[in-house]
């Protein structure tokens, strides 16, 4: 059983067995437009909640992706280096950015559920 939570900065995290998969929301990719470059964090890097974790760039601008929770990066989506447009095509699926082993699962309580996020994004 997995739970998906959202941040005010339009990241999603889907947690299963203490490991969260992180990406940007469909709303975020729509706002950014055509994504041409993605930089994912190095595996093994320790992130604190709110750290700059990844970068997603459109033709127009670069956007930082923040860590929604603290923990250690266990996997990164290396395929995005060659196919950054996957984030546009499937932001909440194949366009995931990295996986993080949560150091403090209680941080999830501070994040929004899907209904709250939809209200936040005005969707």
């Amino acid at each position: 059983m997995s739970t998906t939570k959202y941040t005010e900065d339009h990241e999603w995290i889907r947690v299963e067995d203490g490991v969260g998969t992180v990406g940007i929301t469909n709303h975020a990719q729509e706002q950014l437009g055509d994504i041409v470059f993605v930089e994912v964090p190095d595996v093994g890097r320790t992130l604190s909640k709110g750290d700059d974790a990844a970068v997603v760039e459109s033709v127009k601008a670069a956007s930082e992706v923040y860590a929604p929770v603290s923990g250690e990066v266990t996997e990164a989506n290396a395929a995005l280096a060659d196919t950054p447009q996957t984030v546009n095509e499937d932001a909440t699926g194949a366009g995931w950015l990295y996986k993080i082993k949560l150091s403090d699962p209680s941080q999830l309580d501070d994040l929004m559920d899907e209904d709250a996020y939809k209200a936040h994004a005005g969707a």
């Binding site: 437009g33 055509d34 041409v36 459109s58 033709v59 127009k60």
Partner: peptide, 12 residues
């Protein structure tokens, strides 16, 4: 207008 539905890449 910064872009239209076609998007920056497509417009370019």
């Amino acid at each position: 207008p910064v872009q239209y539905p076609l998007g920056v890449l497509g417009e370019h």
